[in-house]
């Protein structure tokens, strides 16, 4: 019984997160300005990180935790670098 409940919830959550990723991707592709694209990328990173965590629950394997931590770290660095680039026109001054 609990496996059925959990399987249903995990599936719904994964579909919702996939939709969230698609919406963030839409904002990233559509723009209209560069800062909108970076914001979309940031949202895409966060939702894919969460998607991986839910994958971890689905498989019962903690190895997904590490990959979502890496995605989180890389997403942060990437967004900061891009925001800095938008402000100054270069990343390393």
């Amino acid at each position: 019984m609990s496996a059925v409940i959990l399987a249903l919830a995990v599936t719904v959550a994964q579909l919702a997160l996939a939709a969230a990723m698609a919406l963030a991707l839409w904002r990233m592709v559509r723009g209209p300005r560069a800062q909108d694209r970076v914001l979309g990328l940031d949202a895409l990173y966060v939702s894919s990180m969460l998607q991986l965590l839910v994958f971890g629950i689905r498989t019962g394997n903690t190895v997904y935790f590490e990959s979502s931590l890496v995605i989180g770290v890389l997403g942060f660095v990437a967004t900061v670098a891009l925001a800095k680039f938008l402000m100054r026109g270069e990343v390393i001054e």
């Binding site: 919830a9 995990v10 719904v12 959550a13 994964q14 919702a16 997160l17 939709a19 969230a20 990723m21 919406l23 963030a24 904002r27 949202a43 966060v46 939702s47 969460l50 839910v54 629950i57």
Partner: peptide, 13 residues
């Protein structure tokens, strides 16, 4: 799970 995923979806919406 549903709360977290739902809020993330609303955010990207």
């Amino acid at each position: 799970l549903l709360l977290g995923a739902g809020l993330t979806l609303v955010g990207t919406l």
